[in-house]
Nucleic acid binder design. Sequence first.
DNA 1: CGGAATCCACTACGATACTG
DNA 2: CAGTATCGTAGTGGATTCCG
Lengths: 126, 126
Amino acid sequence: MPESPWDIYLRNCPCRDVLDLLANKWTALVLGALSRRPHRFGELRRAVGGISQKMLTQNLRALERDGLVTRTVFPTTPPTVEYALTERGSSASKLLMAVSEWSVANFDGILESRKGYDSRVMEPVG
Amino acid sequence: MPESPWDIYLRNCPCRDVLDLLANKWTALVLGALSRRPHRFGELRRAVGGISQKMLTQNLRALERDGLVTRTVFPTTPPTVEYALTERGSSASKLLMAVSEWSVANFDGILESRKGYDSRVMEPVG
DNA sequence: CGGAATCCACTACGATACTG
DNA sequence: CAGTATCGTAGTGGATTCCG
């Protein structure tokens, strides 16, 4: 079995830019936060932690464009904007939550692996 | 319930660089290919499609360092190097395969969403 | 508050050439 | 074949400033 049709399809398919959105540094964290409840912009920024306003804006725009989150503006002063998951975003978030949890669960083992690798690769330099 | 302990933990935890590895443009594709069978370098490059040799090398090193793939060198000429999943890599690949499949399954709907978004955002310019 | 716009450093990444 | 090394470019992403 040299190659499955699925592989070939995925490799040639423009849908890979969807995968790129999900496999983004921030997407898992953003969707994870929104999966618990809708957030306002600044609130979401704090919830994610470490993301600049620019990146968060960019990510949210992409997510909104692809129909994973909704953006609702309340005409108050100062402005209030609320981001929430759509049905589609919710289903994506479930997958990405699993990935996040895997990261946490396997972190210790991975640290061990790194130690071994680094000591093997970086021979004594003196 | 303002914030779960899990959120706080994930936000402050260095394990986020593990998430960064998984949420990488290429990781899902590489692990996906390796999940079917071990691959040699060039073979893997073709299987993934569109990745430069440099990027593939970098990714494989990171994956090896974190104990997700093994790298086996056979002292033949020309050299043969085989990459395969570890137990840990296999468990990660299962999650990422689900993400890939989600991308394929939701691609059409997402395209629709984009069309709507773009026509809404980009007003007639003339 | 929730952005958009500008500036700028960094580095990601591809193309090319060379090695074992 | 499976890399490493070097270079150049294009984009990522932070800091800052300004606006509704």
